[in-house]
Every structure is written in C-alpha cells, then in structure tokens.
C-alpha cells in the first residue's frame, strides 16, 4: 500500500474489492471470482503465479452462474474471427 503510481489510489481499490467480494457473495456469486493482488512491473514471476493460481481457482469453481448463451442478435456476430 502507498506504493501506487497514483500515490494512494490502491487504497481506494482495496476498499472497493473488500466491499464487492462480500456483495457478490450475498447475491450468490462466489467471492473467489474477484481477486486483487499488488504486483509491480518488476515482479513477473509473481504475476504469472497469481494468474495461474486464479485460473485454477476459477476452473475448480466451474463456469460462472452468469454465463449465458450468446443471443443471436448480439453484436459479436459482426466480427469475423480470423
């Protein structure tokens, strides 16, 4: 904390994440789906480790309860993926 490029900006983030985790949990979305970790640009291995761990956590939790079938009229149809 306090090492933020924007001085104390991460203090605000920390509070919001704390709040959001609990709110999500309350409406039935697992709090583990939201994660916050401070990683500096000099900490590549920590970043990789964190993301790998997060991916594993998400895989164990299974698909998000909010995941739904794409509606045919959604704009994604416009984009032809090469």
């Amino acid at each position: 904390m306090g090492d933020c490029h924007y001085l104390y900006g991460n203090v605000a983030t920390e509070k919001r994440i704390k709040f959001m985790k609990q709110l999500l949990e309350f409406v039935g979305i697992e709090g583990e789906r939201l994660r916050r970790k401070w990683v500096s640009s000099a900490e590549a291995p920590e970043f990789v480790e964190e993301i790998t761990d997060f991916v594993n956590t998400l895989k164990a939790l299974g698909p998000s309860p909010l995941k739904r079938e794409q509606k045919p009229d959604q704009p994604s149809a416009k984009v032809a993926v090469a």
């Binding site: 309350f26 039935g28 309860p65």
Partner: peptide
Amino acid sequence: RMEALGVKERFTQWM
C-alpha cells in the same frame, strides 16, 4: 434469513 441460505440458493433467489 437470506444469509442463512447457501450461495447457489441465494443466486437463484436473487436472479
């Protein structure tokens, strides 16, 4: 009452 429910059940009810 709502807090006593499981996370999945809460999701169903809220949605």
